[in-house]
């Protein structure tokens, strides 16, 4: 459900753990050629306001959707976040391999951000995009395997999924919700049954005792 979520967030939020560099959904955007503000007003009055100054060639923090839109119009270059570098991703990948039961700390929206930037702004990358692409793919696969292994732990009470990003959660969401719900229902019906059967079981036990007595009797 709501797998579209990440595309519409525009504000940055801190990532779990908080130690790693965080890139929410806003991108740095160096707008040397951006003549946005040459009109009458300095500000683009949007439903949610974003201020676009007339600072030439200085970085400006704007939402990802706006950055890709301007990039498409060839009005700006995007400053790719630090974590989208071969070096950083390789460290993460090694971590994923090293700790098989833990997810390494990646930005909350690493998958969609990486995809958008690779699609629209591959010429702004410092490292070769194809290397980044293949590293991202590796990371994704390693994490997917881990997440699938985690499914074994599913129970009817709760499950903890620290370190997963929103997109990865959304991929597993329908499955996990349905399984947990079914497990819960089965567990509930077990409970009801157990309550109903407590007196009956006692009776059954007595019956069995009688039978065994009979058996003994017959053998004799």
């Amino acid at each position: 459900m709501s797998s579209d979520l990440s595309r519409y967030r525009t504000v940055s939020r801190t990532q779990a753990g908080g130690r790693e560099p965080i890139c929410g959904r806003s991108m740095m955007c160096s707008g040397g050629r951006c003549d946005f503000s040459s009109g009458t007003s300095r500000r683009t009055g949007l439903v949610s306001t974003y201020c676009l100054g007339d600072k030439k060639s200085r970085g400006e923090q704007i939402p990802l959707w706006l950055a890709t839109l301007l990039k498409k119009q060839e009005k700006c270059n995007i400053v790719v976040p630090e974590w989208l570098s071969v070096e950083y991703l390789r460290v993460r990948y090694d971590e994923e391999i090293k700790y098989p039961s833990k997810f390494s700390n990646l930005p909350w929206h690493w998958l969609p951000i990486a995809k958008k930037l690779l699609d629209y702004a591959s010429d702004d990358f410092i490292d070769p995009p194809h290397e980044i692409r293949s590293l991202l793919q590796d990371l994704r696969e390693v994490r997917l395997v881990k997440a699938r292994k985690g499914i074994r732990e599913l129970n009817h009470v709760y499950i903890q999924l620290d370190g997963l990003s929103l997109m990865e959660i959304n991929e597993m969401r329908p499955f996990i919700l349905e399984v947990m719900d079914q497990l819960r229902k089965m567990n509930d019906s077990l409970k009801v049954k157990a309550e109903e059967e407590t007196p009956r079981q006692a009776a059954a036990q007595m019956d069995r005792d009688d039978e065994s007595d009979d058996d003994i009797y017959q053998k004799e």
Binding site: A16, G17, Y158, I159, Q160, L161, I169, I176, R184
Partner: peptide, 12 residues
């Protein structure tokens, strides 16, 4: 269930 800050959980 102890919910720790920034932990992600699936609960009812």
């Amino acid at each position: 269930i102890e919910l720790t800050k920034d932990g992600i959980y699936v609960v009812r």
